[in-house]
């Protein structure tokens, strides 16, 4: 095209050709850049700044002061608490799975299936996991029937499956596979030579793990934990399908603010809530990046 015709022109010095060519190449980056600006940067900026305006488009701090509202604070606390707990359980169980998979050749069918299953459950479950847990633990489920038969009523204090406590098990269910995906590379980074060195120096299996294995893995574990936390904190679909009423966690509160048409200006509260979420995510992901850099020191 342009660069071609330039090159075909006889006697054009190459140094002259270079400039227009790189402009043409830079133009090649334009479609992607425009796309990312329109559908990633712009929505993020709009989401965070829309909290600064009221329904009529006037500047206001009201939506952000609404973040100090006890109801909103309680929801943020519920979100943080849910994420802390499910990320902790998920990280520990997931790390145990990774331990069991050390040294298994990644091309073995068992590894391939575990990887695929982990990917599906960690990233694409959403609403479907909510249905799975209603069928597994709901009032009509086999588990509930069995427990009732031996005299245990798990719902004696109310139907908590559709409320905040009901989110814990489904969340752990998608956290464990995410831990397997993110922590496995660190586990595979443990070098057999370290174990040999440990043995040569008279160390035992115990000293290997306490003096070498766990200290080396600790930063990766923490980084993975933060990633799991972020994952729980931003999850929406499972909670939306389980808790069809109420706004127990921040994403559900955003839903309520977005879909409510009764209260004027609630749309902009969604913006303030989104800004609050982004703030938490920035803190968590900065921590993640910092720890991850430390963790990579042992890899190569």
């Amino acid at each position: 095209m342009t660069s071609m015709s330039q090159a075909n022109r006889p006697g054009t010095p190459t140094s002259r050709v270079r400039r227009p060519r790189s402009i043409v190449a830079a133009l090649g980056l334009a479609p992607f850049s425009i796309y990312v600006v329109l559908f990633l940067a712009l929505p993020t900026v709009l989401a965070v700044t829309s909290g600064l305006f009221d329904g009529k488009g006037h500047f206001t701090w009201n939506n952000f002061t609404a973040l100090g509202d006890p109801v909103v604070l309680r929801t943020f606390w519920a979100s943080l608490w849910l994420s802390l707990v499910t990320a902790a359980v998920g990280a520990i169980l997931g790390a145990v799975v990774c331990y069991a998979l050390i040294g298994v050749n990644p091309t073995r069918p068992i590894r391939v299936s575990v990887d695929a299953a982990a990917g599906v459950l960690a990233q694409f479950g959403g609403v479907m996991l909510a249905f799975v847990f209603i069928a597994t633990m709901g009032r009509n489920s086999l588990i509930n029937q069995w427990l009732t038969r031996i005299g245990i009523n798990i719902y004696s204090s109310g139907m908590w499956l559709y409320d905040l406590p009901g989110l814990i098990l489904p969340y752990i269910y998608f956290q464990v596979p995410l831990m397997v995906i993110t922590f496995m590379p660190a586990m595979e980074g443990l070098k057999p030579q370290w174990a040999e060195a440990n043995a040569a120096l008279g160390g035992t299996r115990w000293t290997f793990w306490t003096r070498i294995g766990l200290p080396v893995l600790a930063p990766s574990f923490m980084a993975s934990y933060l990633l799991l936390f972020a994952n729980s904190f931003s999850a929406y679909a499972t909670a939306a399908a389980l808790a069809s009423q109420g706004s127990q966690i921040v994403p559900l509160q955003i839903r309520a603010a977005l879909t409510s048409e009764t209260v004027l200006g609630r749309q902009n509260l969604a913006g303030a809530l989104a800004a609050g979420m982004i703030l938490v995510m920035i803190v968590v992901m900065t921590g993640y990046a910092t720890i991850q850099r430390r963790a990579e020191r042992w890899r190569s």
Binding site: L38, F39, L42, V45, L46, S50, S234, A274, I278
Partner: peptide, 18 residues
Amino acid sequence: LLPITIPAIVLVVGLSPI
């Protein structure tokens, strides 16, 4: 990799006017 860190629920707030 940025979209991983921006929750879909946040993105949707800004996507709705778009």
